[in-house]
Write a protein that binds this DNA or RNA. Structure first.
Lengths: 228, 228
DNA sequence: TCGACAATTTGAACATGTTCAAGAAATGGG
DNA sequence: CCCATTTCTTGAACATGTTCAAATTGTCGA
């Protein structure tokens, strides 16, 4: 998937072609009939390879979904560029990034539950907290770092350094909400984003009130203390 | 399955005995060898019934786990009684309830991941947000209502009425953290509880500062607006 | 070019959750 | 007490993710 290659175009040899064939076939079937209804046999069949061959490249069906998710994240990072380039204020920047995710993820909503189910297992490599997904996670967190850095937000340094991760957690929360959202066009989730973002903004600006400052410090300290 | 009868004390007839036999056998095996390693065949074997019979009473393996979880919740409610009776202050009340959960759940930690995985699927009846688990959820929320009501906490009415649900969410967060916690005796989660509870207390008391009040109202309004 | 080693591919076999048609047991009305 | 009906029980069959030993293909130094 991710070509580590500076050189490796031999990675596009025979094997790499097969790998991509299998993945693209799987993604198509997932989209066409959902994750649950798509069997490994169907994927192999459709791709014209054997079942065992699919397993040679992808350790499990879940890994194929993982690849699906990675693609989504890549798309999100792309879509987000123009927003980060255009907006200066914190609120539209954050709201834009969150809304963009909803847009990109829309086609996946139907079987998001399945994905979530897998991802929720702490032992799964798909878990958003797993080592294996660290690169993807770091990339996501970085988007939020840019949301903050490019904005007009003024914050105490220690809070500011934790904030990207916190906003990423906020997004995880939004995703969780989204997964459970059964309204048309996930209207409810969109409403949540629209209302929550200005609220976050207000909360952050509150940290400048003297009486609030102490609590803020404690919050930051708590967060730091529980990080691995 | 569902006894439509108003009369049903015949529910303790033969069938009910089998049902309990299957459940207790399943729980024992889950405990002895974990959820994943325990097969439906093993449960049926050990209980001296057929596989199909197990399915007659429990729609799926997940439903057996659900029963397991329900038991845990019942235990928690029991264990919590003396704490609620003894303590007056908000902080020890809340901390006590959360710590009690960790104690009760300790034996289940090993396969908590599996449980969580199932529960995370929005379509699963095991989901903490599903209709099917509403009774269990309501009972849990009620514990937090009592944590608040029996305490010295002074709060604006609208916040106070939302707070039980918020504390329940806090517990869901703790559980999530706990599931991922691999330290001995889940030391990290205990540390989280110890530090987070006083912080929650401070945050709640902050809501009396005039400049904070407006934000608090917005938060409450947001929460209300996204509830189904 | 040849042969050895590595990479790839195969498909049958396995494990396990789940279903289902058929039969056995219990129940209740006459 | 007997038959009809419901409840319960069975075990074989099914579906599907996964494994694995063997076969095939590719690569590369001699």
């Amino acid at each position: 998937m991710i070509t580590l290659t500076g050189v490796t175009d031999s990675a596009t040899a025979k094997g790499e072609q097969t790998r991509e064939l299998i993945l693209s076939t799987a993604l198509r079937l997932f989209r066409e009939q959902g994750y649950g209804k798509t069997t490994m046999r169907a994927i192999a069949n459709e791709a014209g390879v054997s079942v065992g061959n699919a397993y040679y490249y992808y350790g499990s069906k879940d890994h194929l979904m993982q690849a699906y998710y990675d693609l989504l994240q890549d798309q999100h990072r792309e879509v987000v560029e123009p927003i980060l380039a255009a907006e200066q204020a914190f609120v539209p920047r954050l709201a834009g990034v969150l809304r963009a995710w909803l847009d990109v993820a829309a086609p996946y909503h139907e079987f998001a539950g399945t994905f979530f189910k897998t991802a929720a297992d702490p032992r799964s490599p798909l878990s958003p907290f797993s080592d294996e997904s660290r690169p993807a996670r770091d990339a996501s967190i970085d988007v939020f770092r840019r949301v903050i850095d490019g904005s007009d937000l003024k914050l105490p340094a220690d809070l500011k350094s934790e904030l990207p991760e916190l906003l990423w957690l906020l997004q995880m929360g939004v995703v969780l909400f989204w997964v459970y959202d059964q309204t048309d066009d996930v209207r409810r989730t969109r409403a949540l984003v629209d209302r929550a973002v200005p609220l976050v903004d207000r909360l952050l600006r509150l940290t400048r009130i003297p009486g609030v400052r102490g609590v803020t410090n404690d919050v930051v300290a708590l967060i730091r203390s529980i990080k691995p």
